[in-house]
Design a protein around this nucleic acid. Structure first.
Lengths: 193, 193, 193, 193
DNA sequence: GATGAATGAGACTTCATTCAT
DNA sequence: GATGAATGAAGTCTCATTCAT
């Protein structure tokens, strides 16, 4: 099936990025080898290397976005849900995460080479929506207090999420993921109390 | 003087990155043009393009690190100093900031292409030291409370700094830099009270 | 039947050339599509693209040669027959004509890529024979005078035929095909009187 | 000098075509080798292979056109001048002649791949002008008679010129160039008397 | 027998690097 | 020391050909 083959290529790209390679200097021959097909076969499904990278980015983003949305059920309350999201980010980070890409200025510069300004804007707005859903749930449960403006709430949620990512990608700080999640919850709750 | 010419090249690279170009796909001819020298002349001072990029990165990092250190005098107290640092980051962001590069996983992947694991580790430790100096000052002034573990303090300081950067690089969030700095101070102080 | 399929392929090639494409850069996939069969099927009947082109050339030449021979009956006299031949050339021209190919130095260079020197020589001789048959008939009818050497007669017959082709393929000259045929007859007759 | 280098490349292409190669399947590496430069050097002066071919065509045409114009002085009368032009065509033919290319339908199809419809039209008109200059001179000297329409005169001039080219490129016809020139003059004069 | 997905040889093109001026 | 024309290694992409279905 046509779409299956494309996914096979996406997975090849992702596996290379997971191995520490930068998207920009992947060679088509490497991608082909990584997903177990011939060089020419890539061009049966994509018209250029750039298209391969771009579509892989979109694929990965949607995948990650969907998996985040799935975690927004909060059956066991906001904090349990939030911790699950942090865990999901951890997993995504060890892989190749467009979410992380968007959070950093460097990442966005890279992205800009492949994705239109308009699409980036759109993705950004989706991310903010997702953050708002999280905050709404926390407010509803009384986990954080309502007197702070939404902008301040967002600021802190983004802050603790980024700090969490930074912690787990920097072993020099010598904190376990669990410890970092505790800090994230504690800091968020205190700052928004 | 030899070192002057090298700096001239660094500035050329920096100006290109400021224009939104990604480090990875700069051409030597572009760099030469950007700094107003001949293509061949680059090879009088650097042995390869990779060396140009690497040394520019190190140059920029040291420059930024030094400028941050200069701000750590706290003549007017911690908060005023911290706000100055945020302002300095804002300026660095609008330019080409290795500091920001290091804070993100994407940035670090890019960096890894040019800088050895050892050097990156080293830089990371310097950054943590800098953060500790900041925290010590805040504690000394009683601006934050001492009962929290150092790891938690670092977590939050990094968090608000990253959130600040994110805010000012994403106009969609529609907060002024000043507002964001207020949030950063407020969040930090509340979470560490 | 085997030969039918081959002809189907020839017709596909011919139709593409009629659409203005150059023989040299036809793709096998295009040929296959143009004749309504699968790409792989071409290789059931031909061993290579080159063979397809070569055999199409030979097919088309023989077809055209035969159709010219059919017109050499001269039931209604030389001039009527000659005019019919001119009309046949016009039709061939608007299509894809090996006859025309052979008359030009460019055409022959193209041909040489596909057909052996020997075969080209052979075809050339057939063309000259055909011309001689035409001239014999004109002489027999007294339409032209016998005192000129055969080489001169050939020279002029070829000349008016080429000029005729040139006229009808260049609308800039603004002469109708009929007018051009009149000129061809008039010029030939005067020059050989 | 920049233009000199371009001409060096043109001459490389021309030499290959003179060796019997078709313009269409020249490889850049061959062209580079033929003119004694590196493959990459071609791209210092031309942006693509297509541009190399196109500009070579234009260069050759202008060269040939100019050399024809130089012969249109008729110091020694029309016939001597006309014979000189035939000789010039012979020389051009043994080389790579855009003039010959334009005279044939095959040649024009090839040309169309490189040159715009508009430019081809333009070149065509120049050729017709050149023919008219020739005819005017012949009329002025009384070498041909004025009672025939210009279209008929052109028809015959083109005819004998094409026939001449055909003769000298087909040794099978076993006429010397001189003989063919005699036939051309004789035929032209008789048909236009 | 018919097909078209898969392939890789080989083409075009870019660009880091060299070196004669 | 400074230069940029020249270069060729290496990358992207095309397409004739194969072969499993």
């Amino acid at each position: 099936m046509n779409e299956d083959k494309k996914v096979q290529v996406y997975l090849g790209v992702i596996s290379l990025v997971q191995q520490g390679r930068s998207m920009n200097d992947l060679k088509v021959s490497e991608i082909a080898q990584a997903c177990g097909i011939g060089k020419g076969t890539c061009y049966e499904y994509f018209s250029s290397k750039e298209e391969i990278i771009r579509e892989t980015l979109m694929y990965t983003f949607h995948k990650e976005f969907d998996s985040f949305c799935d975690l927004l059920q909060f059956d066991q309350g906001f904090e349990a849900g939030f911790r699950q999201i942090l865990t999901a980010m951890e997993k995504a980070l060890s892989q190749f995460s467009p979410f992380q890409t968007l959070l950093s200025s460097v990442g966005k510069r890279e992205l800009k080479q492949y994705v239109s300004e308009e699409i980036m804007e759109n993705i950004m707005l989706q991310m903010i929506q997702l953050i708002d859903v999280l905050l709404d749930q926390a407010l509803q449960e009384g986990w954080i207090q309502p007197q702070h403006p939404r902008e301040y709430q967002r600021f802190l949620l983004i802050g603790v999420m980024e700090a969490y990512c930074f912690q787990i990608t920097n072993p020099q700080l010598k904190i376990s993921a669990e410890q970092a999640a505790d800090y994230a919850c504690q800091g968020l709750q205190k700052a928004l109390s």
